[in-house]
């Protein structure tokens, strides 16, 4: 029993730039035939790369947990591996660009140095100077639940590179991903550095450049809410001041 496979051709406009040979970036028109087994944008891109091996992008887990294949898809940041092919309207090319606001290394690969610098700047590790117990530290299920919606970040940079405040001040504004990570440690009952963490963020740029535009929430492929976490940090700073 064989049913004819419903093939569909997808047309793309893809940002291409190889500093080794291109004077300037250009948009490449390219198309690929996909079969019903190709469910996600990444599946189509793998087929595109088989056709043109110079097309460059990062990818790894293909299931939305490693955060490699973030890109700008028809104007919106997202992960190629979690984007349904079937949802693209027929007759219109799919436009792929690198994440905005970061330097392009090549094609869809951006230089994420600035993004990771901001992550590192919030001291993203647990601080607890108590003598280590023999066994695990205890934490109530309720306290542990405070970390839900925070620890799941995959550092794909969809949020931070969708944030106008980051585009304007990438060196000064921590950005939504970094601030979400900061709050992940502030919210952890095992962490003892809350005051230092708040000091580190009490700055007109690092935290307060967030103007609750909420692009971050709109694009997060994991459904996380950095704006809410940022709001909680701001609230704590206000409470600390009074």
């Amino acid at each position: 029993m064989t049913t004819p496979l419903a093939m569909r051709t997808y047309h793309f406009k893809i940002y291409r730039y190889d500093p080794d040979k291109d004077a300037k970036p250009y948009m490449q028109d390219i198309s690929v035939v996909c079969d019903p087994m190709d469910k996600k944008l990444l599946d189509a891109m793998v087929k595109l790369k088989a056709k043109d091996d110079s097309l460059s992008f990062r990818r790894s887990c293909r299931e939305g947990v490693c955060g490699s294949d973030a890109m700008n898809i028809n104007g919106k940041n997202g992960l190629a591996c979690l984007t349904d092919l079937a949802a693209f309207p027929e007759g219109k090319p799919i436009v792929l660009r690198p994440l905005p606001g970061l330097p392009v290394v090549r094609d869809l690969i951006v230089d994420m140095t600035q993004f990771f610098k901001q992550y590192l700047s919030i001291k993203p590790y647990l601080v607890n100077d108590d003598p280590l117990p023999e066994r695990e530290r205890l934490q109530s299920p309720e306290d542990r639940e405070e970390l839900n919606g925070l620890y799941e970040c995959i550092m794909c940079a969809c949020c931070t590179t969708a944030c106008p405040s980051f585009w304007w001040n990438p060196d000064k504004f921590v950005g939504p991903a970094g601030l979400l990570a900061a709050y992940r440690f502030i919210a952890d009952t095992r962490d003892q550095a809350t005051n230092e963490r708040l000091d580190n963020l009490e700055d007109p740029y690092r935290l307060f450049r967030c103007h609750t535009i909420m692009n971050c929430v709109d694009v997060c492929p994991k459904g996380l809410n950095p704006t809410k976490a940022i709001g909680k940090i701001k609230e704590m700073l206000v409470q600390r001041a009074v």
Binding site: Y125, L126, R137, L138, S140, P141, D143, Y151, F185, D188
Partner: peptide, 12 residues
């Protein structure tokens, strides 16, 4: 101890 967010049972 490194900070991994394990789920917890009622006794912590």
């Amino acid at each position: 101890h490194y900070g991994m967010p394990f789920d917890r049972v009622d006794n912590g």
